[in-house]
Computed example of a mutant assay.
Amino acid sequence: MGIFSLFRREIKYEDFVKKANKYDNWFQRNKAIQIMNMAVNQPFTNREISSGFIYLGILYSKIKDYGMASDCYNKAFELVVKENFNYHPNFKKAIETFIKSGDQDRAEYWLDNLLQRQIYDKKYKKLNDFKSKINNV
């Protein structure tokens, strides 16, 4: 171990998010996307990587690339599909994006999956409104 490794700062997931947020706030979304793409390729926990894909989904939705956003949301949920995790309002954005991108199968699959999570978090009931939206598409 060299002397410089003593001063080497570990890069944390939060560091990527802060930097991406800064660019997103400055309306430089492509730069924010680039940073978050680097983040999801780091050796972080599945939850952190999943969170990174959720953020990427949000960023792609902001630039109206719903296909890429849908793919990111799908990857995020796949990473933690077998884990319990609490409801977050961004899950509504994910389901909306699946619908906007015309990805009916993903919308139905993930909506069902998320609604089953009401067993441990009642806030998932907030997604019930999407049942009628999906059935009317």
Rank of each mutant, 00 (worst) to 15 (best):
Ile33Gln: 02
Lys133Pro: 00
Ile58Asp: 00
Phe7Thr: 09
Gly57Ser: 10
Ser5Ala: 09
Phe16Val: 04
Tyr13Gln: 04
Ile3Asn: 08
Lys22Asp: 03
Arg106Met: 08
Ser132Leu: 11
Lys126Tyr: 06
Gly2Gln: 11
Val81Leu: 12
Phe53Ser: 01
Phe91Cys: 03
Met36Ala: 06
Phe53Pro: 00
Ile49Thr: 09
Phe91Val: 02
Lys19Cys: 02
Leu59Thr: 01
Tyr109Asn: 08
Ala69Arg: 04
Gln28Gly: 02
Asn86Met: 15
Cys72Gly: 03
Met68Tyr: 07
Arg47Ser: 08
Ala107Gln: 08
Asn84Gly: 07
Tyr73Met: 02
Leu59Ala: 03
His88Gln: 13
Lys92Gly: 07
Arg9Ala: 10
Gln28Arg: 12
Ile134Asp: 01
Asn30Met: 05
Tyr13Cys: 06
Ser132Cys: 07
Phe130His: 02
Ala94Met: 06
Cys72Tyr: 00
Ala39Tyr: 00
Asn136Ala: 13
Lys92Trp: 04
Ile63Lys: 05
Ala76Ser: 14
His88Ala: 12
Asp112Cys: 12
Asn30Pro: 07
Lys31Pro: 03
Asn74Ala: 12
Ala32His: 05
Pro43Val: 05
Asn135Ala: 09
Ile49Lys: 08
Val40His: 04
Met38Lys: 12
Ile54Ser: 01
Ala20Ile: 03
Phe27His: 12
